[in-house]
Design a protein around this nucleic acid. Structure first.
Lengths: 331, 331
DNA sequence: CTGAAAGCGCTTACAG
DNA sequence: CTGAAAGCGCTTACAG
């Protein structure tokens, strides 16, 4: 690849001047600048990332730490992040956090410490206290998005309010036997997302003086929702409505109801959370949370943190009830 | 962050020796090596990525060029890539190719040319001839995976065989009115995946002396499949079976059939391609193509190309017919 | 086996 | 406004 040196030679200036002309920093005559830019364009010059980061201490790259399993959500968020980063010329370095202990250790102790990024965005990742500390020790801005670790959660949806809104929607339709599928342990004092949504569920029922028709714990997958719903729907006093803590859980519940010969919404109302691509096809009522916009907000927060001229987003992320055909009054 | 200098000082050796001890290159006494490694561990030293790439010309990072829209497939592949890269200490730089011309120009002309990666893996991306040239001009190993651009397709499934297998499965069940949903223009001479699958469809029918019951073109989305199936199923001579070129297209077809009061598989058999996560829930017969393994293969190909000691994968990727309940003999 | 020195390709005070 | 020089933090011939 062409070097600055060659550009400078062609423009008949020093490398220092060429650098200034290309970066826009420092003052120099318009004529010189134009000449250098011409030369750079002619030669197709692009500054070496390694050399400039070494010289400036800035990489123009943002790390994104994700569990690659949560496909739908993270793809949305990632796209949102890329949307904001690309125009400013920032790259994305993707760090995949699996469950493998050795891999995770390497990730936190080595990969992240190579100095490849200016900031890191952490997506919906459950981390140990030690990992959280290691992240902090990086000395980089850390932007949490949908992270269970509250201290890192720079940006978040008010998940208690989400749980409340979903439950109140069902209550408003007249349901009195409402069950919940989530991932929280009901008595968990933690601040992770499933627990917060569960708390909203409990609070809304309490306010209405209605008792819970059950809670089933599941992984945030269709399979998990499927199994949990099977369990809830085969109880003697079965619920007339289910609030699932994610759309994928809700899809699983819809499949389960169908298998048990129960029609949605005639025999069972189902509401999810996310605004998943497929929710329209399942005619699923859900609480949208705009993950693409969340990604953009996270990117903005990261850019603001590294000193780029963008306005930092408000920490509170919006959500919105979208009513479709999967919820109706009980019959 | 700690520098090599500090490690060297603590181990009482020169920076050169410290570097050798840590990299394992060059010969030095076991005692010295141990001392340096100790010091590095004590200080939590990790070499700066920028400095080592500048010195060696190698980045230990692989670029992955994706259209972030194709969520399911790319998440699988990405996870497969990460699985192989992480143990060797390679990072992933993610390049998102959108449809925005300005963004794409920047991507090919600037981002990719910053020298941040040692090789690039291109996923299922349609590129212009100019973009293909720009990629080649990078002078880096390029690994194509599921790329329409045949010249770049280092790794590929035999998509004519896939189309043939799907069609023959339906023929074998006794169907004689079989339609196809894909993205190819039937007369397209190109070598892109949809066209190849369509060619397999045509060939299988020809061999069986059966006429096509129609072709509908659609984007590779559920929505696309939904619309295309609606069209096919409302023709006077409607098909008894549909071969959809992807599982998402097939899901759309299933939704469409349901809306038209046609039951799968009683009134309509549907077969897809992919082995999508959801295919089990839709009881969809499909041609699995193991994207996670494809990602691992692509990573291996990239690693082999940059001189790592891994065996390059065979260029032909496997696929497999998985029969579920969405296909049955016509009634 | 180990060290001093040059070099990777930029950027940025420091002079002028 | 422009250039010479030092420095970012490594690695690797080259000597010894």
């Amino acid at each position: 690849m062409t070097s600055l040196e060659e550009v400078a030679r062609r423009a008949e200036v020093s490398a220092a001047t060429a650098s200034r002309a290309l970066s826009g920093r420092g003052r120099l005559s318009d004529a010189t600048r134009a000449r250098v830019q011409r030369a750079a364009a002619d030669l197709g010059y692009v500054a070496s990332a390694a050399a400039s980061s070494l010289a400036t201490g800035r990489t123009r790259s943002i790390g994104v730490l994700v569990p690659l399993v949560d496909q739908w959500f993270f793809a949305q968020v990632l796209d949102g992040i890329a949307t904001r980063l690309a125009p400013l010329g920032y790259d994305i370095t993707l760090y995949n956090a699996t469950d493998d202990p050795a891999q995770r250790r390497h990730l936190f102790r080595t990969s992240l410490r190579r100095g490849r990024v200016d900031a890191v965005i952490v997506l919906s990742l459950a981390m140990s206290a030690e990992e959280t500390d290691e992240l902090r020790a990086l000395g980089l801005p850390i932007i949490g998005l949908g992270t269970p670790i509250l201290e890192l959660a720079t940006l978040r949806v008010d998940d208690v309010a989400v749980g409340r809104a979903a439950t109140e929607h069902l209550l408003g339709l007249g349901h009195r036997r409402i069950a919940h599928i989530g991932h929280a342990y009901p008595r968990d004092a933690g601040g992770d997302i499933p627990t917060l949504r569960h708390r909203g569920f409990v609070a809304a029922l309490a306010d209405a003086g209605v008792e819970s028709a059950g809670f089933a714990r599941a992984d945030f997958t269709i399979e998990g929702g499927h199994r949990a719903a099977h369990e809830l729907l085969s109880r003697s006093e079965r619920p007339t409505a289910i609030f699932a803590a994610s759309d994928e859980l809700a899809f699983g519940a819809v499949f389960a109801a169908r298998e048990l010969g129960q029609e949605v919404p005639r025999d069972l109302s189902v509401i999810g959370v996310d605004g998943h691509d497929l929710s329209g096809f399942f005619a699923l009522t859900t609480i949208e949370q705009f993950p693409h916009a969340q990604g953009m907000a996270a990117a903005d927060a990261a850019l603001a943190a590294v000193g780029e001229d963008v306005t930092a987003p408000a920490p509170a992320l919006p959500f919105e009830l979208v009513v479709r055909a999967s919820t109706a009054p009980p019959t």
